[in-house]
Design a protein around this nucleic acid. Sequence first.
DNA 1: TGCTAATGTTTCGGAAAACGAAACACAAGG
DNA 2: CCTTGTGTTTCGTTTTCCGAAACATTAGCA
Lengths: 119, 119
Amino acid sequence: MSTNRTPLPGRPVRGSKTGRPLMAAMDLLSRRWALRIIWELRDGPLGARPLLARCEGLSSSVLYQRLDELTTADLVAPSEAGYTLTDVGMSLGPALHELNIWADAWAETIHARSPEQPH
Amino acid sequence: MSTNRTPLPGRPVRGSKTGRPLMAAMDLLSRRWALRIIWELRDGPLGARPLLARCEGLSSSVLYQRLDELTTADLVAPSEAGYTLTDVGMSLGPALHELNIWADAWAETIHARSPEQPH
DNA sequence: TGCTAATGTTTCGGAAAACGAAACACAAGG
DNA sequence: CCTTGTGTTTCGTTTTCCGAAACATTAGCA
């Protein structure tokens, strides 16, 4: 599995030859399920199967690919209790919190815009 | 655009049958280039071609697909001057700012961890 | 021992998404 | 006209993801 193309700051990533940290982060975190996996680990370690169970629709193959990338990127590390967020992984918290807040506001505007929802 | 599967809060999205705003946001924003497009529009409207020019590696077909989704999601709107962020699109700013800050910290830890790196 | 269940992980064929390049459409401006 | 810049669509190829099954390992237990 040395064909690991995990985006890291400081080297070329999709959309940036210089690997600006933000671009590397966007590349890494906008891969499908990456943010979700981090989100599910926010309250403590989880094993692979429990993690899979929480992410309905996530396949194991993609899960392990993401875990590999996130591990390479040092956001996640394996431990006795399962996969766990590293310190820097944990420090994504505030950004996710902001995103959560924003999402609620977004939901408001969408509902305000289209009062009668189709069913 | 009849088969537009734009994730919106309140309806099922990838990873959530209930369409929790955060899940819908993750689904929408973790599509490739979505965050980047918003990032590039942060300082004002841009036309499609200029936008394309800024996102090296982005293809026009994907750009228009994203613009369509982001427009449906009410984050982006077309205007005289080009594609522009809506109010709610703009309000993603703080979250992106947090992400930017985090990315820099992340870069620090990566460099601290492996001073001389990959092959 | 042998069975069963839970977990960790890999494999692989098919489906969906992204890419890349070209093409079409339509305005200016020279 | 002809070029130039822009907005947009089309389509064949490549990459990524999905879905299900399989294999490995460990723990409990009759």
